[in-house]
Design a protein around this nucleic acid. Structure first.
Lengths: 354, 354
DNA sequence: TTGAAAGCGCTAACAA
DNA sequence: TTGTTAGCGCTTTCAA
């Protein structure tokens, strides 16, 4: 210990909590070497006597030295940091994406700033500003809906930007989205494969792009299976269980031709439909098979029976976003709108238990 | 524009994307003043001729200058950055907390690093390490369950730490939790106030501290209302709708004394119970009133009828966590375990519509 | 094999 | 009123 006490009155040293984190200078002093040597020793580069290296490493560990990333970043002109801006409160859809993205980037030692802009352009600008100030290496924009949005502010100086579950009219950037249409095809194919002939589609509001795409997939799927769309079997509405129940009334009350299968725009609608069918004494899946969308487990598993559902593979989407962002940070140029496949999770609403 | 082209062969200047962000030096050069002057002009401090100031500000705006926070932080020894570590995938409970916290801190220009440790201590250590490297000014630890956990690694150098919806045996830190017991009392008081006499409690697994606390509140609430706990009316189980349905069987099948009210440990149980009662031909709330817990809207509103539920005010909890973290960063010392009040949201499962 | 020093972009104290 | 300069903690080149 260094005993050259200044003449100040009882300087309260050796306090349990140090004033600030130890620096490389502290390590150098304690190890009796120069700063440059410490740097070499800790970064495993350059040639150094093993003894010196070991000693430095030991001292560093002892005093709990941890390099200051801020200083490193300043030097490297890379912050090893990215920002995520969501115009939604990281909800049901956004979260798995963000989680997987964070996981992937953490593997590379890149940390993630989380910014919630709640659909407020002013807040978004402010967050963006802050992120630019922090010199993030990249930006991910995500949203509650996969619909088009205005590009995020003037992405200064060629900052890599990725839109996930979100898209922008920005030819410089990349949009990563689930293939809603393909997912719908999967659903209808499955229903056809289990022998259903009359498939109705109960879904959400048509001003959602996802609704329009899933409808297209529904139509395409029917055609591919040699089935045809039936008049009155396409019912857009809202995203709720109540609408699912109501739609069953519309499909079954005083109709001569009733469906033997439902493809629902989300799991809430599907659950409502399943409840309504049960309450009418119809069996799911025997009388009517149901496929939902989202594979939102809290809904799909709690429904009676548990729902077969289309999974958008949001975690995979998030992970890929991480991957592509790393590419872009590495200097690769990627852009365009990419749609990634959905998959189907089969449960008892289409296939009765053995 | 500066026209002193170097003799290098077509240096491709005026490219749409600049190599890197402009620095204070660039501003100084373009404005024809010194770096110090720019700093003064932009930081609104010191005395400067208005003309100079305006000119500098204009130039800065024109070239899109934005101070480098990394450099500022290095100088100030404050990163204006905090980290959040969650041992849960920012789920249903964590998210509103984190969202409100981020919102509060954004108001102070503090950015939030999001780290998901998924119950893996190794990942947690790694994230903590990374955050310490980034020199975060504070740390928030949150979780899927409010139960006790081991304190987060060696919080170096008196770093402020707050546990929200989570607690640790760490006398140095602060834990912020919902008052589960008080919430349960609110529920029972409400049921007593609408004239119910026999209140059953269907809840989750007893190894959750929340289950034990809510049970205590249930007992205390009954006593305060002059009611007494009935044998067999306390049913711990699991957190699912299926358990809620099953519990109704246990309470009503071949029992002489059946409850006229249910206090459920969460909204899923409550919803299951409501479904089971309806299917037995019992009316909610006329025959049996139901209060849930969590006020998870996606459940509480979709239930038939919509559920009266105890709200843990998680957003308020998150906001307060932000507030207290700011206090701690400002040097104030706060510690201990603080429980914050819940509130009751009344819907048709206890009070029939007018 | 090790040390010295420049510089990353910024602020603030001091000089002019 | 404005300019100069010493750091903040680190990496890296160059010199010893």
């Amino acid at each position: 210990m260094d005993n050259t006490d200044p003449p100040s009155p009882t300087p309260d040293k050796s306090a349990p909590t140090m004033r600030s984190a130890p620096t490389i200078r502290d390590v150098a002093r304690m190890a009796g070497v120069s700063i440059g040597t410490v740097s070499k020793a800790l970064n495993a580069g350059g040639r150094l006597r093993q003894e010196t290296r070991d000693n430095v490493v030991r001292v560093a560990r002892e005093i709990g030295y941890r390099p200051n990333d801020l200083a490193q970043s300043l030097h490297r002109a890379k912050s090893r940091t990215i920002g995520i801006i969501s115009n939604d409160s990281f909800g049901r859809f956004t979260f798995p994406i963000v989680e997987a993205l964070e996981e992937r980037l953490a593997e590379e030692g890149i940390a993630v700033f989380m910014c919630n802009a709640t659909d407020d352009p002013a807040r978004e600008r402010q967050h963006l500003d802050q992120l630019l100030g922090k010199r993030v290496d990249g930006l991910v924009v995500t949203a509650r809906r996969a619909d088009k949005r205005v590009p995020v502010g003037p992405h200064a100086h060629g900052l890599p930007v990725i839109y996930v579950f979100s898209q922008a009219d920005d030819p410089q950037s990349l949009s990563l989205l689930p293939d809603d249409e393909g997912g719908a095809v999967l659903a209808v194919e499955h229903l056809a494969a289990i022998g259903r002939k009359l498939v109705a589609h109960i879904t959400g509001p048509e001003h959602f792009e996802a609704v329009r795409l899933r409808k297209a997939g529904y139509i395409a799927g029917l055609k591919a299976a040699g089935l045809s769309a039936t008049d009155g079997f396409y019912l857009p509405g809202v995203w709720s269980e109540a609408w699912g129940r109501e739609a069953i009334g519309r499909l079954f009350d005083g109709r001569k031709k009733t469906p033997d299968a439902l493809f629902c725009g989300n799991d809430q609608i599907a659950r409502g439909a399943a409840d309504a069918l049960r309450e009418r004494g119809l069996s799911v899946p025997n009388d009517v098979a149901i496929v939902g969308f989202d594979n939102w487990e809290v809904m799909a598993l709690a429904a009676r029976p548990p729902l077969t559902s289309v999974d958008m593979n949001l975690r995979a989407l998030g992970r890929e976003a991480g991957e592509r962002l790393l590419d872009m940070i590495g200097g690769k140029r990627v852009r365009g709108v990419w749609r990634r496949p959905c998959s189907l999770v089969v449960r008892q609403s289409t296939v009765a238990e053995a």
